[in-house]
Design a protein around this nucleic acid. Structure first.
Length: 992
DNA sequence: CCAAATAAACTTTTT
DNA sequence: GTTTATTTGG
């Protein structure tokens, strides 16, 4: 009955895969663990495996569960599976992120475990508010945030709690008592309001599937994406999904585990391998994404973690330009520099690269301010992912809360928030009292008010007459009417009253537009436009629901009746809480190229040709409040490995905030970068023909002719990254002579005078004079400057290569075989055992100690301890850190069957650059830099003429950057533009 | 008891 | 800059 796969079809699937990927896709082991480094075609492999399982193995799509970690990943997965599978069969697959799948099962079968069918989802703000209230009630007021974290952790850990943990907890102080009490009260509050928080969705689903395995009796196979981010409860859920046939495929990369703070446990990988002994382990190590230089440096970062599972990254592409570590004076200068660099790249690519190809990745969303303002000032379109969400806007949250109250009158929290919005003369005190009274009477606030207004039960809380009047006419009655209409429309032959109508009637009955005007006189138009946008999002939602019909529905199971979700409103609300982000209109994406600003977390799994990672200073990454520095390092690793072609790290030297008079506080370069900072270029790379055509090759795009490119260059254009001083500290020369100018040196000593690899001092000197003139001078003497950078690069190259060679020697002895891992580290599980036995995976920077001696059996399976005992002063350049180079270089050469295209690349590359691959790097760089020179005199002249224009706002001095007017668009506003909105602070209320 | 105005503290990452 | 606690005036 499965359509026998035509051999041509089969071939088509397989031919797009490399050897390891093919093994992963076609494996018939019951459980498969795919260890997939960045850019290794993880998603492609997973989607191919789904297609394989459906089309070749013959599993019905509806018997497959694919769980991802984020909504975005789920969306993309669905799209790609859809393309590969065809016939819309992807809709039958149970596909989504864990929470939404869990919600689906609970909506269908939740009543079996006594769950109220009409449960709602308590989002972040909700649970925070609830816990806060509980804490305030307590005599000893515990910290709400801590309580919340504790509760969440407890739930996320899963039901398979280890007793030793319980014991430890019990042994601890009796603050635990309070925590437990808060937990209890919190749960009972949720229950009364008929809410489940995010963790509860998973917990309850586990409970459901434990008690009623038949719900998933149809499931043949389960696939999990981003496995390294699963937490305990998700692990259990995965096992329960697959409990019938125990066929599971997981894909993950321990190096990219960045959700430990959310109780994700890399441990789960080891747990998986221990639980399923027959697991086939497959490593995907070829990296198709990035230039080699990017991977080299990323590995130098991640390998600082001594306790990680060692894994290779085999670059497929050429070396490419060296990643940049740029120092800027301030955060706003950093933003301006990023803009200048984006523009330079765009221009030098002759339009081959657009804003869409650029991403700015941030440790925290709050860092976006300067970036946004710089982009806005320059009129560069951008969008922000992560951070502020559309649904987080006050005006939107109010509407959502109204909708929640409409759906669930017993949702006291939502009711409490909207009770006085728009103003009804009800103050904080009254609301609190009503809550309290309702709680004691064990009824909902809504019921309390309702009864009071009907005279059935007079509230003890004093409610003034005008107040009561308002409540009845503008709150109770309108919402009741809407509820009634919804109810009627649901019944047979009812008048259609859809979601959009609900919202529109709501808006008019509470006179929301008027409220906007009164409350936000400055920007009520903007906010009202946001509300309109919500309406259109709702319309889209309804349309999508009708279109994809079966979409959200679970397969029918014999002998088990599932509740059908017919109502639109609850699904919309669930979508709002779980998706946590408005679906971006696809039309918009294509029309206007926009730069992406994103948190690193939200950028996982994505890639861009050009990536900026600003603010790589201590305190930002690693973040001050981060408790796991290894995770912070992985975060940086994730950020760096998003880049395909050009990678820029940057760091403002001074904190931007401090007082004007006091000495500006200094930022310290991130400790992850500090030891290897010399491996970076100190300014943007030359973007000459060879570089650009290499990029074109990787991206599979066509590069415009050189003539075309230069014809388009504006006259005022600087082809180099020389608008900002390479060493901004030098500006500080006058009064505060903290640096006693020792670096000053005659400029003669510049080129060819590289002694100890320090940044070429002679260049600073004239750069300092005035930033405006910098561009002028530098471009007037193009050869000069380039020669110096050339020198610097060669010096840095040499340093790195020395380290690499040393590493090579050390490693050569150990492993002459072309094995992927160190010989002794045969399998992931092998690593697991040692890892857990050696140090209970308390990965701490204590790894400098000779741990090999202290640890016991099994340690020999590690490959690194030997080298780590040999202490070297510069840890970054320690041989073992660079060991990845070895296999990479060899692998490419040894590789027998590469696709024809790659073969060509190789042939072309080596003869052209160097005879010896090992020593190729400096030679390549040299070549590049020499080639970098040909700025014809005409161009230099052009630059000279125009420097006056270039010099406009680019000094690092513009403080207090005003909001860019460019983004304020009069007339119609595209949805995305609204989301953009950098100026108007989005006044989020994080729950009250 | 409510609303407006002023002073102080705060500021990861996401489902 | 922004949310929250406090004070003051209605």
């Amino acid at each position: 009955m499965p359509p026998p796969l035509l051999s041509s079809q089969k071939a088509a699937i397989l031919s797009s895969l490399n050897d390891a990927q093919r093994r992963a896709v076609t494996s018939d082991a019951p459980t498969v663990a795919i260890l997939a480094g960045p850019g290794s075609g993880k998603t492609h492999t997973l989607t191919s495996r789904v297609v394989w399982l459906v089309d070749h193995v013959g599993i019905r799509p509806e018997d497959v569960i694919v769980a991802t970690f984020t909504v975005k990943a789920a969306r993309e997965m669905k799209e790609r599976i859809g393309k590969a599978l065809g016939n819309g069969r992807e809709k039958k697959i149970v596909l989504g992120n864990f929470h939404s799948i869990a919600r689906r099962y609970l909506a269908a079968y939740g009543r079996h475990i006594g769950l109220n069918q009409k449960f709602g989802i308590a989002d972040d703000a909700d649970s925070r508010a609830i816990i806060k209230r509980i804490c305030n009630r307590k005599p000893v007021q515990p910290d709400p945030a801590a309580v919340r974290a504790w509760i969440s952790k407890k739930k996320a850990k899963g039901t398979e709690v280890d007793k030793k943990n319980a014991r430890k907890d019990a042994a601890k102080n009796k603050g635990l008592q309070d925590l437990e009490e808060c937990y209890q009260e919190y749960q009972s509050h949720l229950e009364k309001s008929n809410l489940l928080d995010f963790d509860d969705l998973l917990v309850k689903c586990v409970e459901l599937l434990q008690k009623f395995p038949s719900c998933v009796s149809n499931i043949q196979t389960v696939l999990i994406d981003e496995y390294q981010d699963t937490n305990g409860i998700q692990y259990e859920l995965m096992k329960l999904f697959a409990q019938r046939h125990k066929r599971i495929t997981i894909v993950g990369d321990p190096d990219q585990s960045i959700y430990g703070w959310r109780s994700a446990e890399v441990k789960n990988l080891w747990r998986f391998l221990a639980d399923f002994r027959a697991t086939a382990e497959i490593s995907l190590e070829e990296n198709y994404r990035s230039f080699r230089s990017i991977l080299d440096l990323s590995l130098l970062v991640i390998q600082q973690d001594k306790n990680r599972y060692k894994k290779m990254l085999k670059p497929i592409h050429n070396r490419g330009p060296r990643p940049v570590l740029r120092k800027l004076k301030s955060a706003s200068a950093e933003g301006d520099w990023i803009v200048s660099e984006i523009k330079r790249v765009m221009m030098m690519s002759g339009g081959m690269l657009t804003n869409n190809d650029v991403a700015v990745l941030l440790r925290s969303a709050s860092l976006s301010r300067h970036i946004e303002s710089a982009l806005g000032k320059a009129g560069v379109a951008y969008k922000m992912i992560g951070g502020f969400k559309f649904y987080d806007r006050v005006e939107i949250k109010v509407i959502i809360d109204y909708l929640r109250v409409i759906y669930q009158p017993e949702n006291n929290d939502a009711l409490g928030r909207i009770m006085n919005v728009p103003k009804r003369g009800i103050g904080e005190g009254t609301i609190q009292k009503l809550h309290e009274e309702a709680r004691q009477a064990s009824i909902s606030v809504w019921a309390l008010l309702s009864k009071h207004s009907r005279g059935e039960r007079t509230a003890k809380t004093r409610i003034a007459a005008p107040m009561e009047q308002k409540i009845v006419t503008t709150l109770l009655r309108p919402l009741d009417i809407i509820r009634k209409k919804i109810g009627e429309s649901a019944g047979p032959g009812g008048t259609p009253f859809g979601l959009v109508e609900v919202i529109e009637q709501l808006l008019s009955s509470i006179e929301f537009q008027k409220h906007m005007q009164l409350t936000y006189p400055d920007d009520h138009e903007q906010r009202w436009a946001n509300v309109q946008e919500l309406v259109s999002l709702a319309a889209d939602f309804v349309r999508d629901l009708a279109q994809s019909g079966e979409d959200d529905i679970l397969p029918e199971i014999e002998g088990l009746e599932q509740a059908k979700e017919t109502e639109v409103l609850p699904r919309f609300l669930a979508n709002v809480s779980l998706a946590a982000d408005a679906q971006t209109g696809d039309k918009d994406e294509e029309s206007k190229p926009v730069v992406t600003i994103s948190t690193i977390h939200a950028a996982k799994g994505l890639e861009w040709p050009i990536v900026f990672v600003p603010a790589v200073y201590n305190g930002s990454i690693p973040h001050l409040r981060a408790e796991d520095n290894d995770e912070e390092r992985r975060l940086l690793y994730v950020a760096m490995t998003r880049a395909q072609n050009l990678l820029y790290l940057s760091c403002p030297v001074f904190c931007s905030d401090g007082k004007e008079d006091g000495p500006p506080s200094r930022n310290q370069l991130s400790p992850f970068i500090e030891p290897i900072n010399r491996a970076f270029a100190n300014k943007g790379p030359c973007l000459d023909r060879p570089v650009m055509s290499e990029i074109a090759k990787v991206l599979g795009r066509k590069l415009p002719s050189e003539d075309d490119i230069f014809r388009e260059l504006p006259t005022m254009f600087s082809i180099e990254d020389n608008i900002f001083p390479v060493d901004p500290e030098q500006k500080q020369t006058d009064s505060t002579n903290e640096a006693p100018r020792a670096a000053k040196r005659p400029r003669l000593s510049g080129p060819g005078h590289q002694t100890n690899g320090e940044e070429i001092p002679w260049k600073k000197e004239y750069v300092t004079t005035m930033e405006q003139s910098t561009a002028f001078t530098a471009s007037a003497l193009p050869g000069f400057v380039s020669a110096s950078t050339h020198q610097a690069r060669i010096a840095a190259e040499a340093a790195v290569n020395e380290a690499l060679k040393a590493a090579e020697k050390a490693e050569k002895l150990k492993k002459m075989t072309a094995s992927k891992r160190p010989l002794d580290q045969t399998s992931i599980l092998g690593f697991v055992k040692t890892a857990s036995s050696s140090s209970s995976s308390q990965l701490l920077p204590t790894s400098n100690k000779p741990r090999a001696a202290t640890t016991k059996t099994g340690y020999s399976q590690f490959s690194f301890p030997r080298s780590s005992t040999s202490t070297q002063p510069k840890p970054a350049l320690e041989p073992e850190l660079a060991s990845h180079k070895l296999p990479t270089g060899k692998a490419i050469i040894n590789r027998p069957a590469r696709p024809a295209r790659e073969e060509e690349v190789k042939k072309k590359q080596y003869p052209a650059f160097s005879s010896s691959p090992q020593r190729a790097p400096p030679a390549e760089e040299e070549l590049e830099d020499v080639d970098e020179e040909p700025p014809e005199p005409t161009r230099a002249a052009a630059c000279m003429h125009t420097t006056t224009f270039t010099s406009l706002p680019h000094t690092g001095f513009n403080r207090g950057v005003k909001r860019p007017p460019g983004l304020r668009r009069e007339g119609e506003i595209a949805p995305l533009d609204k989301l953009r909105k950098p100026f108007r602070p989005l006044t989020m209320n994080k729950g009250r």
